[in-house]
Computed example of a mutant assay.
Amino acid sequence: MDVHYMWIEERKDKNDNISYAYIERYTCPLTGKKKRVSVVYPNKSRLTQKTAQQYLQDRIDEIIAGYSTAITLSELLDSYIEYHSNFIKVSTIRNLHHARAGLLASIPGETLYQNLTASMVQHAINVYYETHAYSTTKQLLHLFRSALRYNFRLGVIKDISIIERLELKRKPISMIDIDRAKDKFLEPEELKEVISLLEISNPVVAKLCEFQSLTGLRFGEMVALRDCDYDKDNHRIHVNGTLCVDKGTTSQLSRTTPKNVYSIRYVDLDSRSESILESFMLSNKVRELWKHQKRNNDYIFTTEGGYPFDHHFVNKVLKKLNYHKHLSTHIFRHTHISLLAAANVPLKAAMARVGHNDPSTTLGVYTHVTASMNKEAVNAMELVAEKLVK
């Protein structure tokens, strides 16, 4: 315990006028060093000493309060996001801000951490989960836990036991969930229909989407492929990068590392996907020869102008189809996973092919496809039973 005591020093000015400095020491909570505060009065009467002592104590309390570890929830989250943003992609930063907004929708950002309770945070998680997917809600919980661990490591907060009292349980899958999840991927006949519609509206985009559905690549991974990433002899591609928008810009693309270490992989090509790939490479060579157009980084999937395709453009083309399912570039990746599930490809092999490191991510599609197949099997048995009864 830091014990404060006051002493008095007599002082004279150049005219020999006497005054008294009342001085007290305190320990700086930031550095641990001893510091002094003082106040000067013209006398040292008991009343003056009492006044000086009260003033010095108030001054010390004010200084120490400035080093208080009291911090708001929004400050905790923002400090972590600011630090973490230096090491992650723009899309991940965007997801962090979405999770932050979701948490602060239920808990005021100015809430002091010391006043935060597990029930408040759990309530916020439960409310968010009512209108969002499990994976999205999991990101919210992960942000909260990561922000606390980061600030605890820096000594900003002293106790993070609250994170041990929070939980997120996946809801049981219902038939409604299965039907809703089916909107996230295309059945084989739907895929064929969408590709046919695209071939009419935009044949080049049709090839892009078909290639995605055959390989399971993320759109950013696909457009980041270069000539050197195609292993023609072994009929495979080396996925080792992704294209994303640079921080602070709206149009400048940069090639960065994939989403995670598991995303760096070789993907075997079937004859159709290989044919699509080579058709783009041939078009690029024709443009280079006849238009003397040099591609940047030798990207394979490029526009007439020699630049990699942008997913916003492709999504606009897909939206114009007015299909009964919501179409985006990501639905073709999910479609590929659903095709693997329907073909009974082992989960581990499917994860390796699409670059997943969390089984639950792949299982999210696998489970829905399997449940859908089971439902169809039950319906088939119903028809058989009806015939037997007749």
Rank of each mutant, 00 (worst) to 15 (best):
T31S: 09
K34H: 05
I63T: 05
T51Y: 09
D58T: 08
L56R: 04
Q54H: 11
L56T: 03
E62M: 08
R59F: 00
S38K: 10
R46W: 09
S38D: 09
S38A: 10
G32P: 00
S38V: 02
K44N: 14
V37P: 01
R59A: 08
K34D: 04
L30G: 00
R25Q: 02
P42R: 13
V40R: 09
R36A: 06
T31K: 03
P42M: 12
D61T: 10
I63G: 03
I63E: 04
K35E: 11
P29A: 09
P29R: 05
D58G: 04
V39T: 15
L30D: 12
I60H: 06
L30M: 05
Q49L: 07
K33T: 06
I63L: 15
Q54R: 13
S45H: 06
Q57H: 14
R36H: 12
K35P: 01
K33D: 05
G32Y: 05
R59E: 15
L47M: 07
I60S: 03
R46A: 11
S45A: 07
V40M: 11
P42S: 15
Q57Y: 13
Y55C: 04
R25T: 00
L47T: 14
Q57E: 14
E62K: 13
C28Y: 00
V39I: 15
P29Y: 01
P29Q: 08
E62Y: 14
K35L: 09
I63F: 07
P29W: 00
Y41H: 10
S45E: 13
P42Q: 14
Y26M: 03
T27C: 02
R25V: 00
T48G: 02
Y41T: 01
D58R: 11
L56Y: 08
L47P: 03
T27F: 01
Y26N: 04
L56S: 02
G32I: 03
S38N: 10
V40N: 12
K44S: 03
Q53K: 14
K34P: 02
K44V: 10
S38G: 08
C28G: 01
Y41S: 01
S38H: 10
R46I: 13
S38C: 06
A52L: 10
Q54T: 15
K50G: 03
D61E: 13
S45Q: 08
K34T: 12
Q57P: 00
V40S: 10
L56G: 01
A52M: 09
